[in-house]
Design a protein around this nucleic acid. Structure first.
Lengths: 344, 344
DNA sequence: TTTAGCACTCGTTAGGTGAGAGTGCTAACA
DNA sequence: TGTTAGCACTCTCACCTAACGAGTGCTAAA
């Protein structure tokens, strides 16, 4: 089932051409390309073979050929030439980090916007998994007799806040004491571990010093055990509407609805392992994305993987360019973030 | 130019029918309605008059009639019978407030979702204008030598946070002292007034106690003068895709793009005065909304207007039901919020 | 004033035609 | 044996036409 060099060449040209024009590619128009040195009849024979092998398809009996998912897969796995970004693209990406920003989320959000502008596809960026961030400071601010806000600040400058209730009988002094103890003992602990740490190591100390220990800890622990919201940022949500393959209302409806309820897509993205990943069409296991490809790249601080940055486009996507861009942005992002947060 | 009773009746039936079916209404089908006691020929004559007066239109020379914007306007201004909400609708609305929530934003967000589910249109809720909220507590959390997060908590449980930079030379003790003084003096002041208050009343005290007064105040004041982000919440963004009038890709593109860049729509909504307002089609002054109507209602705490809750639907919208719903929700919302925050 | 009747208009649908692009197959060629 | 020219065939698309139906405006009678 190995492809001959000529078949590979033809497949390559078909995919490139279709990506550019969104039109089925015929043997005659192929034979006119300068890199093709044989006749349309020969091409027809090769195309028939490629079709039998499942790399290309016809939209109807006498149409030109269109890459199949298998064809795209082969193209992505074997035929991709990494594309060099041009000066203006590099500059645009760098502008993400130009302003002096400290908040991780803002940087990530801006990345999503820039990425969608550069590709004219939809970009999706999963914010850092806040749960892994380390506690910088915990504060509790009473709002009235039985309500207070717990504010959790992480080492990445993320601020998470939650309102919680407790009996009015609790002594405000106790709360303050508790917060002090917690900060002393829990600074630097990942948010996800806070609760276990409290019970394992801090509980006994607290019990000694705090009168209304039971009640307070009940409320607080419940509050802390809510996982931090994983933020998802989008860029160019409506860009897909401009792709010629989405001139069908039903497809748009499905896709937009899928994008709008952020959970589904963010889970699909989160499944992808470290590095760059390409999922083509039905490989995404989501019927609304049957005509879409998703390219993901992870970013990190030091060795710790933080989040994922992704581009959603039609299967007829400019894989080469998008991969180069994602590669570049995720590397830059990791570099900047590592500088910012690594040694602190 | 006064309409006869019969003309009014016919207009009413046409609008009602068109809202229900989205199909142009012909004289024959009208004559079959039980409330219509005269022949189709009579109706044709009346329709011709109504058309001449601009209340209804034909889509082509021999089509049935469709309400014009002027027709909808008349309908909304004179023919609307307030509709009683049924038990299950009331229950659904009340469920917004069922859980014990303190954070204003969460309540508002949930309202948007429920509203879009009940109407199957798109709902937009402008969050409370945070700038008017009063300062409950200000905290400054240093992240490293030259960066810190300012956390502002308002009396409505809203938490606003901003990262800012300052020279490494600043004494941490100074920062703490400053925060204490600021909290003592500024508690209860609306956010928007913080800066002026600081300079007017607190500056002299600070200058006495804080060594690096100038530098610190420079950074902080800059940080505080950024207006708090006015949050906009959407519900059912894609609901419009299900409306038969939006089976045109271009219309969808325009509308979705407009919705997606939240600024435009939130400004249009913000312009509306207190109470319930209906803007029909081009009255919205936005070409993407030419086929849409926007109904807004304001909500408040006590006498203080807080935000706006709105429904965006096709001009062929169920005005009566939506208005009743908005009326009910905004009243309930105001009631609950007033109870929660008024006397504190 | 109301209504029945009728000619007319226009949109929609179905069927038909021709052009164009592309294919598969066959047979000749190098 | 691989390559190519030629040709019949297929399918889409754009365009036209005819028939149908829903609806109108007008006229004349009740």
């Amino acid at each position: 089932m190995l492809l001959t060099d000529r078949q590979v060449l033809i497949l390559q040209v078909i995919v490139d051409d279709f990506i550019r024009t969104a039109q089925p590619v015929g043997s005659r128009s192929l034979s006119k390309k300068e890199e093709i040195l044989f006749s349309s009849a020969t091409i027809r024979n090769e195309m028939a073979d490629l079709e039998e092998l499942g790399f290309i398809e016809k939209t109807h009996t006498s149409s030109g050929r269109v890459p199949s998912e298998k064809g795209y897969r082969y193209y992505v796995d074997h035929l991709l030439l990494p594309q060099k970004l041009n000066r203006s693209e590099i500059q645009t990406v760098r502008s993400i980090f130009a302003e002096q920003i400290y908040e991780l989320e803002k940087i990530v959000q801006k990345s999503a916007r820039i990425l969608s502008e550069l590709t004219s596809y939809t970009s999706i960026v999963l914010g850092p998994t806040v749960n892994e961030n380390k506690l910088k400071k915990l504060q509790i601010i009473p709002l009235n007799q039985d309500t207070a806000i717990a504010i959790i600040v992480t080492d990445t400058g993320h601020v998470e806040n939650r309102t919680f209730h407790f009996p009015a009988s609790v002594d405000p002094g106790d709360v303050e004491k508790m917060v002090n103890i917690l900060n002393e003992r829990l600074s630097g602990i990942p948010l996800v571990d806070l609760n276990t740490r409290i019970y394992k190591e801090v509980a006994s100390i607290l019990r000694q010093h705090i009168k209304s220990y039971d009640v307070l800890m009940g409320s607080l622990s419940e509050t802390l055990s809510i996982p931090a919201s994983e933020k998802v940022f989008f860029g160019g949500k409506t860009n897909m509407l401009n792709q010629p393959e989405f001139n069908d209302i039903d497809k748009i409806r499905n896709l937009m609805t899928m994008i709008e309820q952020e959970d589904g897509i963010s889970q699909i993205i989160r499944k992808n392992p470290k590095g760059i990943n390409v999922k083509i069409g039905r490989e995404n296991n989501n019927s609304a994305m049957d005509d879409c490809s998703l390219i993901t790249a992870t970013y990190s601080i030091g060795d710790e993987q933080l989040g994922t940055i992704a581009v959603l486009g039609p299967t007829r996507m400019e894989y080469s360019r998008v991969i180069s861009l994602l590669d570049f942005i995720s590397a830059d992002l990791s570099k900047v973030l590592t500088n910012l947060y690594q040694n602190k």
